[in-house]
Design a binder for these strands. Structure first.
Length: 778
RNA sequence: GGGCGAGUGGCGGAAUUGGUAUACGCGCAACACUUAAAAUGUUGUGACCGAAAGGUCAUGUGGGUUCAAGUCCCACCUUGCCCACCA
């Protein structure tokens, strides 16, 4: 009697697989490439947690099945280790980020190796490796050369806790995505990527890709395309100015409501710009503008809790539709960054305008609507399109990132990229890496870093001291995986053409408007710039199929360190082994739904694998034995499991395997014996490999072949005919599959139970559904 | 406030196209094995009535469509996620 000992056999197979390189596809010659990508983790404080493992295992199961179906599966893994998150943790534990990276790298790879995934370890990468970020810098330079990276002074989001600027996408309801601190506004000169140039392409591409609908909607909303009009309202009553000399340009998506516009509102920023060019106004108005701008800098303008404020500017505007003079107000409920920073207020149709009108006792006019284009014509406006999407702010005033490879020369008076042959611009190994709290990166304290020579005139010049947003690191990693040691080019075009676009991408939905938008933007831009051509057929879309996995919850809440409910897989792996933990996680529920991690459910899976072991290892039986019922069930199970796995419904696939095993234990069948093990292999790679070897195979089970079913054997000769009276089940009888309606009716009427229930009356109508039921309607 | 989901046993969850609601697993109960317990195995397990046969009621609530509704339509309640003064 051999005992199932998961720890010993898992260790053994891990090293044998590594030695035999069974998960390393031939990247240059693969005939049926299948790029199975999962979002790479950032090596966080706690190490790999069960939620990460859930995502990786779900993706791996899909890849393992493809490998058994004969595909050359490439399943790379790496670490997204640059960035504020890692740096903050390093600061907290008093380590240098570089040291922390080295430590967590070791721990992460050890954990990742233990979960039983078919990772292509030879292609691993880390974003903080100079050989990686050298090419992140190269990417920055290509965008700069194409005019897609630019430097601009603008109002930006500043996190007073992280002490850096943030991209719009990293501000959630006015708070820093990472630390939940209320974000302030600052006027700073920063590097931006022109993602807004790609708004339409990013929007159009969504219709062509097979992604979770939720993510597509989130991206559409984020891009926020709205069709509307810009209309000039002629201004009157400006002190010291002739009437009609100036006009106010407003943006509206509802020009059809223009007859109801009873006042205009401009943003404090627009008002300030008027002051800057000499607008003379009262001290009260000046005070309001100053105050509103200061509030914005302090960022206490979160929508819901704030009552509207504002002040009459003293200026009037002529509504071009009604020719009536209406007042122009200044209020911070109008945003500077959207449209023209000015609106016509229609309190009868817009809730915010109504609230404002009520507070300040402004007129409300329930004027009739007119047709959209007619309104624009009447008002002398023009159609325009506005986007919510802002350009991607990529500079960060922090240490732990790829230095932005740009140089400022005082004599050439311009920004220039570092020469590509000088890349990487190495992140210096400095002791004082903490954020400075000014608007400068810590690197600005190191002349030995920033003092350089101008790439054009050779004179003294100064390096940019900000570093790149981590999302730039992760915007192209899938390309580098194909060739992580390439020191001549960022990626191999040949390999990219062979392997890309990515066949299956799996990751968390929390990146719907961050990573998943940036990764599309960068790929589409690379195609436009002729720097890549691997996805010509998908319009540059790098990942035509994406699925979001659900979250693993513990005690009713998302796992987090502060709640103290993080589950580390190590302890479970030590007790139960990877096979049990993998299957347990998959059995919780559908992959896109996640589930609640609780110890009590593990028992069922443990029992199942022990039964499997006993069935194959300890119960010797005649290998030629065959059983009709079990054989047929095996064919049906292949059909169901194959389909369920394609839909990532691993929970029901596992339940079908449980049903099959129970039947095999009752009535063994040689065909079922062989296919059961193959179907179990993606879920429980270790135990199946061991049993396969013990049954005498010299090959790995993981190259398949995936079992095929005989469609004829999935159809039964008989079925359970449900007999209903008025839609209620009254009897069930086993009949031939091809029974006719007439025969079914006769049979049903002859049944004792039916006779009793009908009590002698004749059914008026009969509904017959082949292979399902007969319904007698009285 | 806007957008998108989800509400099914004691619990996690099943249910191809509208066609046997509660698969599979946990838990629970009885039995077997055992000196005993654990483990394992077998059987049972939505609620109510009934000795049984059988019946009635059950998929958040209330309506509707249909021979037939967890599934489709309308209204409402609860809840989760995303976005949020974007004119």
């Amino acid at each position: 009697m051999k005992k199932y000992n998961p720890q010993a056999l898992e260790k053994k197979w891990q090293s044998l697989w590594l030695k035999d390189r069974i998960y390393e596809p031939n990247l240059d010659n693969a005939k049926k490439p299948f790029y199975n990508l999962m979002m790479f983790p950032y090596p966080s404080a706690e190490g790999l947690h069960v939620g990460n493992m859930y995502a990786f295992v779900g993706a791996d199961i899909c890849g393992r099945k493809k490998r058994m179906e004969g595909f050359d599966v490439f399943e790379p893994i790496g670490l997204d280790g640059f960035g504020i998150h890692s740096e903050n943790y390093a600061i907290k534990i008093g380590k240098h980020p570089k040291q922390h990276a080295a430590d967590s790298e070791k721990n992460f790879y050890r954990q990742l190796a233990s979960v039983g995934n078919g990772f292509a370890w030879e292609q691993k990468l880390e974003t903080y490796d100079p050989e990686y970020y050298r090419w992140t810098q190269w990417l920055f330079i290509q965008l700069f050369k194409a005019g897609l990276a630019y430097r601009k002074k603008a109002e930006v989001n500043w996190c007073p806790h992280c002490l850096t600027v943030l991209a719009n996408e990293q501000v959630i309801a006015g708070e820093c995505e990472r630390c939940r601190t209320i974000v302030a506004k600052k006027q700073l000169e920063q590097w931006f990527f022109k993602i807004t140039d790609y708004a339409d392409k990013l929007l159009a591409g969504l219709d062509t890709i097979d992604w979770t609908e939720k993510i597509k909607i989130a991206q559409r909303n984020w891009i926020g395309k709205s069709e509307g009009a810009e209309i000039d309202f002629v201004l009157t009553g400006i002190r010291g100015q002739e009437n009609g000399k100036h006009a106010l340009k407003i943006f509206t998506t509802r020009p059809d409501t223009i007859f109801g516009a009873t006042f205009c509102v401009i943003s404090p920023e627009l008002a300030q710009s008027w002051l800057d060019v000499g607008w003379q106004t009262s001290d009260d108005v000046r005070a309001y503008i100053k105050d509103a701008l200061r509030c914005r800098a302090g960022a206490d303008r979160r929508a819901e809790e704030k009552e509207k404020t504002g002040i009459f500017s003293g200026i009037n505007a002529v509504n071009p539709a009604t020719d009536k003079e209406i007042p122009v107000w200044v209020s911070d409920y109008v945003l500077a960054g959207y449209g023209t920073g000015a609106i016509m207020a229609v309190p009868a149709h817009d809730e915010r305008d109504r609230e404002f009108a009520q507070k300040f006792n402004l007129p409300v006019s329930d004027a009739p609507l007119i047709e959209f284009d007619e309104a624009i014509k009447k008002a002398g406006g023009k159609r325009t399109t506005n986007y919510r999407l802002r350009d991607w702010l990529v500079s960060r005033q922090r240490y732990w990132g790829a230095p932005i490879p740009m140089i400022w020369c005082d004599s050439c008076t311009k920004w220039m990229p570092e020469r590509e042959e000088n890349l990487p611009v190495l992140l210096p190994d400095v002791k004082e890496f903490r954020p400075t709290g000014t608007d400068k990166s810590p690197l600005a304290n190191f002349p030995e870093f920033y003092q350089t020579t101008c790439p054009e005139c050779g004179g003294a010049a100064r390096r940019e001291t900000d570093v790149c947003d981590t999302f730039l690191d992760s915007s192209w990693y899938y390309l580098r995986y194909l060739d992580p040691k390439n020191n001549k080019e960022p990626f191999s075009q040949d390999r990219a053409r062979r392997w890309l676009p990515v066949a299956s991408y799996i990751g968390g939905a929390e990146h719907s408007v961050l990573h998943l938008l940036y990764v599309r933007f960068i790929s589409i831009a690379l195609h436009d710039l002729k720097l890549a051509d691997f996805a010509k057929n998908t319009g540059g879309e790098p990942m035509p199929r994406f699925r979001a996995h659900g979250l693993i919850i513990k005690d009713g809440a998302k796992m987090s360190k502060s709640r103290g409910n993080v589950v580390n897989p190590d302890e479970y792996l030590a007790v139960y082994g990877a096979d049990v933990l993998r299957m347990y996680l998959m059995f919780l529920g559908p992959f896109d739904q996640g589930g609640d991690f609780r110890d009590d459910g593990i028992k069922g899976i443990t029992r199942f694998l022990f039964r499997t072991w006993d069935y194959y290892v300890n119960e010797k039986r005649d290998a030629s034995i065959s059983n009709e019922v079990t054989g047929r069930l095996a064919h049906k199970t292949i059909k169901k499991v194959t389909r369920d796995m394609e839909e990532l419904q691993n929970n029901t696939a596992i339940s079908a395997l449980m049903v099959l095993l129970t039947q095999m234990e009752r009535e063994p069948d040689a065909f079922a014996d062989s296919v059961f093990l193959l179907m179990l292999a993606p879920f429980a790679p270790f135990i199946t490999e061991e049993i396969f070897a013990q049954r005498g195979s010299r090959e790995t089970i993981h190259k398949g072949p995936w079992p095929q079913y005989d469609p004829a054997k999935t159809i039964d000769d008989t079925f359970q005919l449900v007999i209903q009276i008025n839609g209620k089940v009254r009897d069930i009888v086993s009949v031939a599959t091809d029974i006719t309606e007439a025969d079914a009716r006769t049979l049903a009427l002859a049944r004792e139970k039916i006779k009793m229930a009908l009590a002698g009356s004749e059914p008026k109508k009969t509904i017959f559904v082949p292979k399902k039921l007969i319904n007698l309607v009285q």
